[in-house]
Simulated assay, not measured.
Amino acid sequence: MKLVYVFDAYCGWSHGFSGTLSEVVSRHPELPVEVVSGGLFTAGAKIAELTGAEFGESYERLISDGSFVMDSEAAARGVAALRQAAPARAAQLAIDLQHAFYVNGRSLSHPGTYRKVAEQAGLDADAVVSAFEGTEIRVAAGADFHRAASLGVTGFPTLLAVDGTSVTTLAHGHATADEIDRLLAALPAH
């Protein structure tokens, strides 16, 4: 069995779910996590209120004049480039990427953002930026959008347990790590 985390790096609810995802991953190191970009975005005050997620001043400045464009395809390319560099750390990299946007106000369309996240994670930043800017990664981003749709995901974030052909929704929008643990414990053992 593995976990499949379907999110959008520009989705505030996904950012709000970062703490839960981090906790679930730390509680279940035996479960591999596949991270899939879904292709949607929303905004933040209610999310902060419900989840406690931080939306930094830099983020508020970035979006304040209305000219900033959230490009989910660019963000999906960045997620794919980071995931390619360190597949086993994809969940943490997704969390780091959302921190870069929502707390540090970094555009997810800018290669420098992926360089910074890669450097902070101890990855080959040149390789990540090169992948982000390359054409092959566009195919990976498109494949993510297709995978999200094929899993029946209609909103973000969604955390699934996938065991062969069996797909169980563990979280949609918001859930606590304890709620997810209860659902995992209820799944049939293989």
Rank of each mutant, 00 (worst) to 15 (best):
A186F: 05
G78T: 03
A86K: 04
A43P: 00
F101D: 00
L93P: 12
G155F: 13
I63F: 05
R182T: 11
G44C: 05
A45K: 06
D96H: 03
R83W: 02
V4N: 01
A161T: 02
T165H: 11
D126R: 08
A148K: 10
D163L: 12
E119K: 09
D124Q: 11
A9F: 00
L82I: 11
Y10S: 00
A143I: 04
A171T: 05
R115L: 06
G39A: 06
S166N: 06
F55W: 12
L40R: 14
Q92T: 08
T165Q: 14
E119I: 04
V128L: 08
V25M: 03
A75H: 07
R77P: 01
I137C: 08
G16D: 08
D181C: 03
S58K: 15
R115T: 09
A91M: 01
G164A: 09
R77F: 06
D124C: 10
Y114A: 04
H99S: 08
T42C: 10
A185F: 07
P157G: 09
D124V: 11
A131M: 06
V35A: 04
D8P: 04
V117P: 06
D96K: 04
T158G: 11
A9I: 02
T20K: 02
V128H: 08
S58P: 04
A171D: 02
F55L: 15
A175W: 02
H146V: 14
I63W: 02
D65I: 08
A140H: 08
L183N: 02
F145L: 10
H110D: 14
F145C: 11
A141Y: 10
A94L: 04
P188D: 02
G12I: 04
L93T: 03
H146T: 15
E136T: 13
L151W: 03
Q92C: 02
T42N: 15
A9E: 03
K46H: 11
T135C: 01
T169Q: 13
L160F: 13
G134L: 05
L108A: 04
E49D: 15
S150C: 03
A53Q: 09
E133P: 05
H110S: 11
L93S: 06
A149F: 10
F156D: 11
D178Y: 08
F55K: 10
S22T: 14
